[in-house]
Amino acid sequence: MQSNILDPTPSRMSDAIPTRPAASQPSADQAAPTRRVALRDSAKAEAGRYRIIEAIRSGQRHEPAVHAELANLTDAETIAKIDDFQLWYGKNQAIHHVNINVARGKVTALIGPSGCGKSTLLRSVNRLNDLIDGVRVAGSITINGRQVFGPGVDVINLRKRVGMVFQKPNPFPMSIFDNVVYRLRIDGERSKSTLEAASEKALRGAALWEEVKDRLKDSAVGLSGGQQQRLCIARAIVADPEMLLLDEPCSALDPIATLRIEELIHEIAERYTVLIVTHNMQQAARVSDYTAFMYLGRLVEFGPTKLIFQSPQLPETEDYVMGRFG
């Protein structure tokens, strides 16, 4: 089983089938009591096994286990630096002192149980959380050395530099072509040849060109779910963003569409740095170079994916990726 998980290019169907994030997955608050029970049982067997998780639950500051390879990234190798980042929704703190370095040209995955703040963290990178009332942040995030939060930051420009793909495919109600070039149009690009060249490049980049080249004028809503999601990827990369954020991009897709997107993430990562949130452990193992395990808004362990899944430093990480906890 472990070798399957670690096989980065899934060859068998069984690998491609995502363990779906159950629709009924409870939110953090609801889940807490059940987890506590589960923990008490395991705690009986191995007292003090979850040292860091216990510290997090009791509200103490803890030192996350960050593997040396990531702790020692040089600035040139780092595209985004999340530095002592905290975020509050009103009075509730959703993210506590998180430090993550996103390595340039690699895929970094954020994993963790529901409510661990991984999506919130992702949406902080392009400040999509600004839309929610009462959001407060502390600490800093930088992309290529430029601040994300702070006075005088041009949010529109920031979002133009960072592409994002959402959980559910969200094509705009217009033609395939118009969808892909939307990003360029809002910048005022009108030249037809430029737009056409850019859309072809983006659609090829998203492995969708062959399927839609004859019907670019058709409505994007008529595409299948997987095609729609690849269209959203094309839309996000059309203007060569510095970084791509994927928020559980496969959770609404069937296994075959999931497989294609995962293959695509591999290809894309060569050109664009990818930060991906996923519920699906096998997916993280397959597509990512680095994995950060988060719990209740804190970073628990961050290291090369291979090590996180094979020989993590913390027993809680090992149990989580094996599905024994969380």
Binding site: N126, L128, L131, I156, N157, R159, K160, V162, G163, M164, F166, Q167, K168, N170, F172, P173, M174, Y182, R183, I186, D187, C232, R235, A236
Partner: peptide, 28 residues
Amino acid sequence: VPRTQVEGSLALGATWWQSSWMMLKYAR
């Protein structure tokens, strides 16, 4: 209009007006 539509356009760097236009278009 689904949130994801508005967020989708905002995430691409649309201004308030551009994303509003997207909403109107979706709900046309």
